[in-house]
Write a protein that binds this DNA or RNA. Structure first.
Length: 273
DNA sequence: GCCCAGGGAATCG
DNA sequence: CGATTCCATGGG
């Protein structure tokens, strides 16, 4: 992919990429829109980033990032080497998906941190997006590492050292004990997310569901969003509606192997109809 | 199988 | 405005 190094920034062009559709579609909860409205700031692991898009020349700008950081971290994170145009063309064999892809064609699947994604989707259960963001902001501010551009997401080790009482300040309700159980099982080695990310999907699901508070939906989200298992297909209340309304006979053949990415378009489509 | 947990947002009357 | 509904999982 082509990019420019301008002062301390990286400039690049990318089709099939919308910042709002990708960063504000419910797959990640850690990106905050800039007041100027032209971009977002957020974190991946220890790496803080401000990303904007120029309205005049369509360049995306990664602020204050080296070429190395761009190539080693952000190209991966934003999945910039995957051709979403081809994916959308393939999905468009199906009439509903054709509409969904046209509706929000700038969605990309982020390659997020395994632990942060698991923990975030434990928090997301039976919950709405504004409140999920609030809880995750608080968990970072109270227990993450304070960097100059914000707070990192706390490690499993850090969380596992806390008591339920100490976790009460993030106001996550009944999910607090789930977060704690996940952190403890990971810290003890009973659950190994790196290993799970390489397992066959059925076995990976079984392993994740050993964590209290991780059911079928949360496990599927952890696989899709934290482990880039694009064949995982989380079914929440919205996707249930999609299945009932449009696919009573089952999912179309054209999304096979990429069900999770197709799900992103369908989710956005049904929610914003 | 059924209800509730803990809470804020969305929707309704 | 207040009342009701929504939401994914586990435990009683």
């Amino acid at each position: 992919m082509e990019y420019l190094i301008k002062d301390k920034d990286i400039w690049f062009k990318q089709k099939d990429f919308s910042l709002s559709e990708t960063l504000d579609c419910g797959q990640s909860f850690r990106w905050t829109p800039l007041l100027a409205g032209n971009g977002y700031k957020g974190f991946f692991g220890e790496n803080a980033l401000t990303i904007t898009k120029n309205s005049d020349d369509d360049y995306f700008v990664l602020h204050n990032q080296s070429e190395e950081q761009f190539l080693n971290i952000w190209v991966e994170y934003f999945d910039l080497n995957t051709d979403y145009k081809i994916l959308k063309e393939t999905f468009s064999d199906d009439e509903i998906l054709k509409k969904a892809c046209a509706f929000a064609g700038g969605i990309r699947l982020l390659k997020q941190d395994k632990w942060e994604a698991l923990c975030s989707f434990i928090i997301s259960q039976n919950n709405n997006i504004p409140r999920i963001k609030g809880i995750i902001n608080r968990i970072c501010e109270e227990f993450g590492i304070h960097k100059k551009d914000g707070f990192t997401f706390p490690s499993p080790e850090k969380i596992s050292s806390l008591t339920l009482d100490e976790l009460a300040s993030i106001r996550s309700g009944f999910r607090a004990r789930y977060i704690l159980d996940a952190a403890k099982k990971i810290t003890s080695g009973e659950i190994n997310l790196e290993d799970i990310s390489n397992m066959e999907l059925p076995q990976a699901r079984i392993e994740l569901m050993k964590i209290c508070g991780v059911g079928a939906k949360v496990a599927e989200c952890a696989l899709l969003y934290g482990m880039y298992r694009v064949e995982a297909f989380p079914i929440d209340v919205w996707i249930k509606r999609v299945l009932a309304n449009y696919y009573p006979q089952g999912l179309p053949e054209c999304i096979k192997g990429y069900e999770g990415i197709a799900q992103q378009y369908l989710f956005h489509y049904i929610r914003n109809l």
